[in-house]
Design a protein around this nucleic acid. Structure first.
Lengths: 278, 278
DNA sequence: CGCCTATTTGATCCTCATCAAAGAATGTGG
DNA sequence: CCACATTCTTTGATGAGGATCAAATAGGCG
């Protein structure tokens, strides 16, 4: 069942009791960071806070004075219309940086809230700005994560604009599997999925009722199963075909260096790198 | 009819016959660029090419070996499903950089094609990478434009996922007005709109037929008018209310320094700036 | 056990898609 | 400058995907 050609993201396991550190975030896994920059990330003071499900980390439209990093649990970035319709713009999984673009923009167009209970790291924006100003690799890290978020949102826009409910849901379930580290392009995958059907609806531009019926259809066909918070995709290959899922847009190879050789290469002077070291 | 509180983007007028230069793009208007960096942009060799409507600048999914800048005409960034459904992800207007994120990512998830005839500037990616590596302000410029594109796409995702056709269309017409330099939040505005109803449909996740009927409804209510390629919004305030349009997400103030004082301030040490000069 | 939230089900309505074809523009070549 | 081709817009009829409303059932948790 293992597909040798697939790249895998390493999952983030939460180092309980350890001092809060940005070294445990996706940021610190980017292959082009120097040892110096990694050290700076590790040393950057961050405050850890446990948060309840539904906790609002950032209200919509306020200045971005802090950035959040997910240690445990899931969060989302969202916007709402005047009359309360909500659209989830991004899902933040453990290890992810919430809205990395806020580092540069300084103003938020969207809110951020937890979708499950968990713990987050919080760092004042100006501290990160100083860090980024001193370390080009860190600037580039935020930029890269922001652009990958953009790529994910682009794919979601195709979903929202042009796919049927069934396709949207299939695509999202496939995407989440890969982002959680299950990159196999066939076989069976099970993962913890704390989203309610209402969350799925807000992410996919549908109603909870219709998510429910769509999910039932997939279950009836023995394509997925969900009990408690665990979601199982019985046949990844089939679900990917239904959702038109192709993992390229996640830019997995840019997020982590698989082999030591790749890690070394990232420090070289390949033309695909900004601020490359000599 | 002029609303004093609104920021205006200066329109791009095409300097016919002049040597092709990146100094005529939105990139070069960013307020934080140093004189040095502006000079580097101006000196950067670029090739100008006239392009027909529907000309494909970049095919979907190919490596990004060139970047494109719109001098005249409109372009779009798009993705398609396997069976040919298309979603426009971004509209590029005169002065805009097409898919600035491609500078860093080096791979494209989407295609780029012209929506009208026009002229574009084309620069090899590695030339821009070298430029960015030498000038932090230029790196930051691409990043900022990429993040603004992201903000625009975020707002479009809300449209696609949660708005009615009428609201989506109203919002897009308002957005285009502002991006073309007509920032007035009330009164009447007329601008050249080369999009066909099919283009609008692909941008808004609807069918051409439904765009047609929705547009007719707006016309019947004397809210808009379109003859030939000119589109008129008779009452910007009302159309904005219908579309829930609020220009904040366009980050206009980050894109251009209105006053000399603001331009000077952008070079200062405000905390909202990365790589700030001392 | 009982409360609260999430999921499920049913009935009905509505927005928008689809299909087909007729007009109106725009552009091209003779 | 007109005939023709092509593209774009418009119109009509019909149907489907998904929304909405309301209420029942099932799960999780103190």
């Amino acid at each position: 069942m293992f597909d040798g050609a697939t790249r895998t993201l390493s999952p983030f396991r939460t180092p309980h009791r350890a001092a809060p550190s940005l070294a445990d975030t996706r940021l610190a896994r980017l292959p082009f960071l120097s040892a110096d920059e990694l050290g700076a990330l590790k040393d950057c003071a961050a405050s850890r806070q446990p948060v309840n499900a539904c906790a609002e980390l950032v209200r919509e439209g306020v200045p971005a004075d802090r950035l959040f990093f997910i240690e445990e649990g899931w969060a989302c970035q969202y916007t709402t219309t005047r009359d309360g319709r909500r659209q989830i713009l991004a899902l933040s999984l453990p290890g992810d940086v919430c809205d990395p673009a806020a580092l540069l923009l300084g103003q938020r167009d969207s809110g951020i809230r937890m979708l499950s209970s968990g713990t987050v790291l919080s760092v004042p924006r100006n501290r990160l700005v100083a860090l980024a100003a001193a370390h080009p690799g860190i600037t580039r890290a935020f930029t890269l994560l922001g652009f990958v978020d953009n790529a994910i949102l682009s794919r979601r826009a195709l979903s929202l604009g042009r796919l049927f409910a069934r396709e949207r849901l299939a695509h999202l379930l496939c995407e989440l599997a890969v982002r959680l580290g299950y990159a196999a392009s066939s076989g069976t995958v099970t993962y913890d999925m704390p989203l309610t059907q209402e969350h799925l609806a807000d992410a996919l531009g549908l109603t909870p009722v219709h998510i429910n019926r769509t999910m039932q259809a997939l279950r009836r066909e023995r394509l997925v199963e969900s009990s408690r918070r665990m979601t199982t995709i019985f046949d990844v290959a089939v679900l990917r075909r239904i959702g038109g899922f192709q993992p390229d847009y996640l830019h997995i190879d840019a997020l982590e260096a698989g082999t030591p050789a790749e890690r070394a290469a990232a420090h070289g002077h390949g033309l695909n790198l900004l601020h490359e070291k000599r």
